[in-house]
Nucleic acid binder design. Structure first.
Length: 289
DNA sequence: CGCTTTTGACCTGCGC
DNA sequence: GCGCAGGTCAAAAGCG
């Protein structure tokens, strides 16, 4: 399991971009499940993003990143520029949430039952991506504890739920295997780490672009992959301040993440991403939510 | 002994 | 309102 970096095989550049996002996102339920989305036909013809354009600095193996989530509510236009929609329900009063969550967590832990604190369960920003790997649980520099596993409808593979073991960090991730291609692991991160990676990448892991990718990944809890990984934004971009800079939600990208960003400042991809997101996300979309 | 994983039960939201 | 599916909890088991 610790051999992820070495053992995983990765998607070839030809691997199709697919629109994938969390079907469980509130307010935007999709008729298709996560894995079903993976099976979207004809995905090769209409990549959502020109990844080479997106990650010009990652010459050999640019992570493919896809804005996803709610944007796909848009009337079936797989090739329309998909936009992440940072939905506000995910971030509404997130600033407050940081404090409240701790309380809530304590409450819910003790009482377990009263779960109806807010009408809608608050969702953290999500970020999904696919990786071709033999192992389900990819090493991403953080420590995770599995807290659940569920069978997924229409998929022979179960979905596993992990939580960051850091007590103050409420980042979660879901891991499931594509039933269309069992060699592909789909990982969805939810939330942002509030602490540096305990297993931060070593400076000499590989090429500079690799370090960048890893650093970027680690900042958001993404696996350290050597090669092709497909990223999908959920609701928000992982690099929070982009939207807030655009005045989308007014705030809440948590400072912890920004801090991490700095920790990972070697990641040029971050900067690229940042800029790209701004290009990608039309302001009207941001306002809509 | 402490931490992680497993697993069944329970909760919640959504579509019909 | 009901049923389904996703998500979470927590006790028990497993492991180092």
């Amino acid at each position: 399991m610790e051999d992820v970096l070495g053992n995983s095989s990765f998607l070839a550049n030809s691997f199709p971009l697919q629109s994938i996002f969390d079907s469980s996102c509130e307010g935007d339920k999709f008729p298709l499940g996560f894995m079903e989305l993976l099976g979207v036909q004809d995905f090769t013809s209409t990549p959502l993003f020109d990844t080479t354009h997106q990650f010009p600095s990652l010459e050999t193996d640019p992570p493919m990143k896809i804005e996803s989530p709610d944007a796909f509510n848009l009337p079936a236009t797989p090739n329309s520029s998909s936009i992440s929609s940072a939905s506000s329900d995910a971030v509404n009063d997130e600033a407050v949430k940081v404090d409240e969550q701790e309380e809530d967590q304590q409450k819910t832990k003790k009482q377990l039952k009263p779960k109806k604190i807010n009408q809608k369960r608050q969702r953290e920003p999500r970020f999904a991506f696919m990786t071709k790997s033999e192992v389900d649980h990819l090493e991403d520099g953080y420590r995770w504890r599995k807290y659940g596993q569920k069978a997924v409808k229409n998929s022979p593979f179960p979905r596993s739920y992990y939580r960051c073991t850091s007590s103050s960090c409420n980042v979660k991730k879901r891991v499931e295997r594509s039933f269309t291609d069992p060699s592909i692991v789909v990982t969805t991160y939810e939330g942002q780490h509030t602490h540096p990676s305990p297993l931060m990448p070593r400076p000499s892991l590989g090429g500079s672009h690799l370090n960048s990718a890893i650093a970027a990944g680690a900042a958001f809890g993404m696996p350290m992959q050597r090669s092709q990984t497909h990223y999908y934004h959920h609701r928000q971009h992982p690099f929070g301040n982009t939207l807030s800079a655009l005045g989308h939600d007014g705030s809440s990208i948590n400072a912890g993440f920004l801090h991490e960003r700095r920790l990972c400042s070697s990641g040029q991809s971050l900067l690229k991403d940042h800029g790209l997101l701004q290009d990608i996300i039309p302001s009207h979309m941001l306002k809509e939510e």
